[in-house]
Design a protein around this nucleic acid. Sequence first.
DNA 1: CTGAAAGCGCTAACAA
DNA 2: TTGTTAGCGCTTTCAG
Lengths: 342, 342
Amino acid sequence: MASLRDVAKDTGFSTSTVSRVINNREAVDPETKKKILAAIDRLGYKPNLVAQGLRVRRGNLIGLVVPQSTVHVFSLIIRHALEAAWQRGYDIVVVNSNEDPNQEEERINDLLRRNINGIIFSRVSDESRILPKIMGNIPTVIVDRAFEQEKVASIVLDNRRAGYLAGQHLVALGHEHIACVTGPLKIALCRERLDGFREALGDAGLVLPEDAIFEGDFKFAPGEWVSERMVEPGSRFSALWAMNDLMAFRALRALINAGRSIPGEVSLAGMDDTEYCEMVSPTLTSIHYPFQQLAERAVEILLMQIETNHIGNETIVLQPGITVRESTGRVAQCTPVNLEGV
Amino acid sequence: MASLRDVAKDTGFSTSTVSRVINNREAVDPETKKKILAAIDRLGYKPNLVAQGLRVRRGNLIGLVVPQSTVHVFSLIIRHALEAAWQRGYDIVVVNSNEDPNQEEERINDLLRRNINGIIFSRVSDESRILPKIMGNIPTVIVDRAFEQEKVASIVLDNRRAGYLAGQHLVALGHEHIACVTGPLKIALCRERLDGFREALGDAGLVLPEDAIFEGDFKFAPGEWVSERMVEPGSRFSALWAMNDLMAFRALRALINAGRSIPGEVSLAGMDDTEYCEMVSPTLTSIHYPFQQLAERAVEILLMQIETNHIGNETIVLQPGITVRESTGRVAQCTPVNLEGV
DNA sequence: CTGAAAGCGCTAACAA
DNA sequence: TTGTTAGCGCTTTCAG
């Protein structure tokens, strides 16, 4: 790999002059410039980003911390962030906190040793305690799982509204006995979603009883619970919202296994609106989460901070939507469920 | 952030001595060592990886290049590689080539400017032309999509066997008219899988006619094609293998929409054995791809090369398996398909 | 407009 | 056993 010095030697100019050309700095004689550019081209010279980064503290590298890179949601965020960053000349080192506040802290600390210029991160949960350490010290954007009253730039979904939309949809279909599978309630956004969901029911004069709520973990099957509540003879619920598609798929599967017809007997909605919603039968109604926008704006805001040398703390709230598919339908359709028991 | 010099000043020793302690180099007086370690601890000093990397060419950073980070397969590879690398003290900068040989080249070139110590990459297709440039210059491991006769370390699936397993399974169930949805045939592994599949049919005295093959792109739905061949009255095929789960899901969906019963009338198998196989109805029989093993061994081999300063070119071939689920069944079960037309 | 020299944070001869 | 010096590849005063 040719170095700056090689170019300097080759052209007879000093390294400083070459550096000026590379960075379009100050005035350089057009003739000189031309010669240097020619040499750069000929030697295939590209500035070494590590050396540059060491000197200028601008390695065009950012860190992305996610709790679980495999979760579809995060894989989408990774992808779009990768893309957006690349467009602007930045690379991303991705790091997995494995939903563990300790690993989160450790890994962010290591990231800092790489002189990264900024961090995008989706924190593990309310237990995260790394933030105070980086806050104000390095450009940071929190995505998806935000802190409530911290002074950091963040970009999140209007989770309360997401919950509301889900509830509203089910209510509008005539359901009166509705259940919900949440994510871990130690994650604030789950509580917000639940609040919104409750509000929607409340607005329709309905309540969400305690035993209509199942605290899931975003990953595994609430299958048994679903069977108990929604499948037994005289089932108490005719509709279910799960706070991500994965859990909804699992519930769907449990219901189908138990011979329930969907949406004939039970309506089911998910959240995230991932591509798999189109691939199950029936297709899954889901709350739409604009991941691409989230990732792109996160990168945008972060780079803005980096390039203006100004650490911001604005919060951007994205609006969810709802994509109605086959899995939700009017309660009346053919539901023989026993509604007395409630 | 405390620097090495801060530690040196604090203890009164020279930077070299501190450096020795950090790297456990040569002999250092135990007393001295103790003092320095204490200071390191007190100041919270951590070596700056960029400076270290610049000096020693060992930044503990590797590059991971995938064609599409969103594709579930690659998101799994990313995840497991991230994890395995972290265990050994390496970070990974992930880069997306977007299935485009030009982007692939460009991005790998940029990666090199970061003084990465090695590259793991799944190349776009046979069109990739970056390899000659990096081959022998930097530790490299190709995963998943290997080159055929290049001298690079690589770790791949026995794709021929994967195809064979799929074919064998369907044949064993009594199917005689079998179709296949492939991935892009410019990707060698798809051709290998197809060969294996053909071989299995051949071993049973069957053939795979040209119009039983649909060249998919690993992403979109061969729905229409599936409907045409397998759904029309007098359908010609009673079984289908798709070269990834995604396409299988789409086919499944098309068949169900068309009122076909699975596996009653049509048997369907996928490949990759992703978690979603368990979430569709019927659950999907799929060829198992050991991604975790793939990623972990890739990291292992790469780090071996890096740490021994010896660029290798061994090829490791992983064996696929088959996970039989509900979507495949005996042809006899209740198939009213017209087999004459073939 | 250009060059010399210093230094980002670290390591590695070479001396002492 | 420890310190001095040079330098990885680059940028940036400061002179000229």
